[in-house]
Design a protein around this nucleic acid. Structure first.
Length: 551
DNA sequence: AGGTTAATAT
DNA sequence: AATATTAACC
């Protein structure tokens, strides 16, 4: 039986044809198991002698994908010898015994699972999962040759799914991710949490598991803990039925993740989450969607876990947020609309709505920050650092303008200006808000780097191609007729380091008009309603007072 | 069609 | 209470 990677390259009906090494003590048991396995299209090689089995794998270890080995108490070695010498082969230990010590020993020695006899079809049909698990969790260097094609096969399988089911492919991405960092124990356990490769019937699969349950749950749980301590690396334990609990000291999610929340009966929340790896160029690029770990082409009847993907909850992790911010900056304030942001972020699975929502929150935060302490703090900071960083605020702190109006400490953001209705004519009392965009925001808790806000918020150090970093200049073209902003001209010209180019000014104006929600710079205040209306009247622009005062 | 805002849900 | 989603509006 020669098995090369190429042979398995186009493994279409995985796990059909999976080669199983069956090591049993007695003929009856062996033939029974074999029959069952073969009925599932597994390719079974039976051994009754441990040494023979061992020599089989040593001579052509690549030929087997998984082993089912009996733990015989009577035997001197009892299968442990095989287990210990078949580290690269996912090995499932079986026994009539339910002795927990035996089970623990098996697991500790690297067994991927312990199955108590009799081996029901339910138990057997899922053994392929261990193969996949191994294929994805082993270091590629350490991965036995027979597993590589499995991995590839599964990969392509998942990719195909992508078309109709986005979420499916996320598994792949995650798995990729996991395999990369397989050294890390935490990562490992995390991966196991998310993608267990249990052979035993799962809770989710229904009541069936009850029948052969015995002390199943309990023992499995015990083993989980135990094995966690024992096996240091290679043969990770695969969690089984107990979908619980303490198994995870789950590490902090560092990758953006989107949770799928399915609606299992209350109590057992079948929730799985997938890490999105922004760097992953695989397939979708980066996906945030996730899936339930039901391998679609596994033995069919056993994998009928309904893929009830529902609402994908986007978790705006710092990474994801960073991407978001980056995109926003890249676009510039006036271009920062959900669809474009989405494009730039290149996070598949993320929807425009998600982005829009986030944008909403983002703006609100900005505004909020602006309203509170920032106003007071700012005048001090401004000299120290900001200038070079595309000053968020106008340079003029408190321009000596001669207005009767007082400066509201917390400027309001009237929405009455109808964007686009007129450009030059609109009184631009609302300054560009975009610089604020990058304002350090200690209150935004997503900021991972409290010390380096600027970077975290979008790298103000980098020149913004679309939004030149010029100090804000309130002296904006197009304001000339606006009484309300007359004071601008009271500002001494030399108080600005640079005079903005026309385009910049235009941009600024445009921003001010189109983004009225953005805060006014210090020293500026909105014009009174009257002055605005007055101005509009003068210019022959019709307006509705009721509408104007609506907001 | 898509953006923004408000309401609702978790 | 915070934050994500959905609905509604423009």
């Amino acid at each position: 039986m020669v098995c090369t990677a190429n042979d398995l390259q186009g493994w279409k009906d995985f796990p059909k044809g999976l080669r199983v090494l069956l090591l049993q003590g007695d003929n009856n048991s062996a033939s029974e198991i074999r029959a069952k396995l073969e009925s599932m299209d597994y390719n079974v090689s039976t051994f009754y002698n441990e040494n023979e089995a061992l020599s089989a794998i040593s001579s052509s270890s690549k030929d087997f994908h998984v082993a089912v080995v009996e733990v015989s108490i009577s035997c001197p070695h009892g299968g442990f010898k095989f287990l210990e010498n078949a580290k690269d082969l996912p090995t499932i230990m079986t026994s009539n015994s339910r002795c927990i010590n035996t089970m623990m020993k098996c697991i500790a020695l690297g067994a991927v699972e312990f199955l108590t006899k009799p081996l029901s079809e339910d138990k057997l049909k899922n053994i392929w999962q261990h193969v996949v698990h191994k294929a994805f969790n082993a270091e590629s260097s350490a991965m036995s040759e027979s597993l590589k094609p499995v991995k590839e096969s599964v990969e392509s399988m998942l990719q195909l799914e992508t078309d109709n089911k986005l979420h499916e492919s996320t598994i792949l991405i995650d798995l990729e991710n996991v395999s990369k960092s397989s050294d890390d124990e935490h990562e490992h356990s995390a991966a196991s949490d998310k993608y267990p490769a249990p052979s035993t019937p799962q809770l989710k699969q229904g009541a069936r598991l009850v029948d052969d349950g015995d002390c199943h749950e309990q023992t499995n749980c015990s083993i989980e803990k135990e094995s966690g301590e024992h096996d240091g690396g290679e043969c990770k334990f695969v969690e089984t039925s107990c979908e619980n609990v303490n198994a995870e000291s789950s590490p902090q999610p560092t990758k953006p993740l989107i949770k799928e929340e399915d609606d299992f009966a209350n109590g057992s929340k079948g929730e799985s989450s997938v890490l999105t790896n922004p760097q992953s160029k695989k397939l979708l690029g980066d996906t945030g969607v996730n899936a339930s770990p039901n391998e679609t082409s596994g033995p069919k009847d056993s994998c009928e876990i309904k893929a009830n993907r529902k609402k994908m909850k986007v978790d705006w992790t710092p990474e994801l947020h960073k991407k978001f911010v980056k995109a926003v900056e890249q676009l510039g304030i006036d271009q920062a609309i959900p669809s474009r942001i989405l494009e730039l972020m290149k996070v598949e699975g993320l929807t425009r709505h998600n982005v829009a929502s986030h944008l909403q929150k983002y703006r609100m935060h900005k505004r909020q920050i602006m309203h509170t302490d920032e106003d007071k703090k700012w005048p001090k900071q401004r000299d120290t650092m900001q200038r070079n960083y595309c000053m968020q605020r106008p340079i003029m702190a408190y321009p000596p303008y001669h207005s009767n109006h007082t400066y509201p400490p917390a400027p309001v953001y009237p929405m009455w200006g109808q964007p686009g209705s007129q450009t030059a004519g609109v009184p631009i009392w609302a300054p560009p808000g975009y610089p604020l965009w990058q304002q350090p925001t200690e209150s935004w808790h997503w900021n991972l780097y409290p010390g380096v806000h600027v970077d975290a918020w979008g790298n103000p150090m980098l020149p913004l191609p679309q939004t030149p970093c010029l100090p804000y200049t309130p002296n904006i073209a197009g304001l000339h007729n606006a009484k309300a902003v007359d004071y601008r001209f009271g500002m001494p010209q030399n108080s600005f380091d640079h005079y903005p180019a026309e385009e910049v000014v235009d941009k600024v104006v445009k921003e001010a008009i189109t983004k009225p929600w953005l805060p006014l710079p210090i020293g500026l205040k909105p014009p009174s309603m009257d002055s605005v209306l007055d101005e509009l009247t003068k210019q022959g622009i019709p307006f509705s007072k009721s509408k104007a005062s609506k907001h």
